[in-house]
């Protein structure tokens, strides 16, 4: 029957099972189940809450339940489907909430919205279409599979794809992290090199300086050299880590360094407590860097004895005051 004969009027509600071999147009409501060999039309006013089996369905109204269609599903704009759908082809211009298996083809038009997992061979999405859910695109090789097996297969496939996707993402993340880790040392290494280079000359000068430590004039000569450590505090973050990193290296070259390395930390406080080195005193002289340069490594190397160093400084300060 080509033309629609059977229709459920807008004011009519059917509760139960509807079966037939012709098109069925629903303007009213059907609750229960529908099985047709032809096409189910759910008009804008129509409402179907049922398990539907049919050749096709054209939905402009609302459908809840399940749709098993041997051929095609068309959801018109305004159509609302809340159902699990199994069909061969589907064109969605309305809203579908539920998993959709379209064996051959699934098209979501610009107005179409689909919220659910999709399994299909061909997926066509127009600009503006909305899709939220997993998508499994199957080849047509499993076309001859029976309905149930196919559903299971798609389920298995989707779970497998889920697994592979998670694996892929973890792989991606690990790749990302490895690239990060690869990137970070490359950043760290070049910065490490120049500083080790800068510290190594210091260590190289250290023996010479320690030889001069006894001479009180030494700080005066080292005074112009003092600005050299000042750029170090300007880049504070690499300095401590590098100092730490270079410390073992220094340890291998000179044993004295290791012994004195922890010493400078308490030094200033000790000095401040003793009143020998008042930071304000240095501030008055424009030696704001006094503290920092007291801490600096080269001083550790230059002055093996703390008292010696303090004496040298006080002498120097007093000479400057005078």
């Amino acid at each position: 029957m080509a033309d629609i004969v059977t229709q459920i009027g807008e004011g009519t509600r059917i509760a139960g099972h509807v079966a037939g071999e012709e098109d069925l147009s629903v303007l009213g409501a059907i609750e229960g189940s529908v099985s047709l060999t032809e096409v189910l039309y759910v008009e804008p006013s129509g409402r179907v809450e049922a398990t539907v089996e049919a050749r096709g369905a054209v939905i402009a109204g609302s459908v809840q339940g399940s749709l098993q269609l041997s051929e095609s599903l068309v959801v018109d704009p305004g159509g609302q489907v809340k159902a699990t759908v199994q069909t061969t082809t589907a064109i969605i211009s309305g809203t579908v909430v539920g998993d959709v298996v379209a064996r051959e083809r699934l098209e979501i038009t610009a107005e179409g919205r689909l919220l659910g997992d999709v399994s299909t061979a061909r997926l066509i999405m127009a600009d503006g279409a909305t899709l939220k859910g997993r998508v499994a695109m199957a080849g047509l090789e499993d076309e001859p599979m029976p309905e149930g097996a196919r559903a299971e297969a798609t389920e298995a496939r989707s779970s497998r794809s889920r697994a592979t996707s998670s694996r892929a993402s973890s792989r991606a993340s690990s790749r990302r992290s490895s690239s990060y880790s690869r990137a970070t040392p490359s950043i760290a290494r070049p910065s490490a090199r120049p500083t080790t280079a800068s510290t190594s000359p210091v260590t190289a000068t250290a023996p010479a300086a320690s030889a001069v430590t006894s001479a009180p004039a030494r700080p005066a000569t080292s005074a112009p050299a003092r600005p050299a450590p000042t750029p170090r505090p300007s880049a504070p973050s690499p300095a401590p880590s590098l100092a730490r990193a270079t410390a073992p290296r220094g340890a291998t070259t000179t044993t004295t360094v290791v012994v004195e390395e922890p010493a400078p930390e308490p030094e200033p406080s000790q000095a401040a407590a003793s009143g020998l080195l008042d930071p304000e005193e240095f501030a008055d002289l424009g030696w704001n860097k006094g503290r920092s340069y007291l801490k600096s490594e080269d001083l550790n190397l230059e002055y093996s004895n703390l008292n010696e160093m303090i004496a040298a400084y006080t002498a120097h300060v007093s000479s400057l005051k005078a």
Binding site: M1, I14, L24
Partner: peptide
């Protein structure tokens, strides 16, 4: 329609 059966 003629081919339709409604049980309900």
């Amino acid at each position: 329609g003629t081919s339709i059966t409604i049980d309900g």
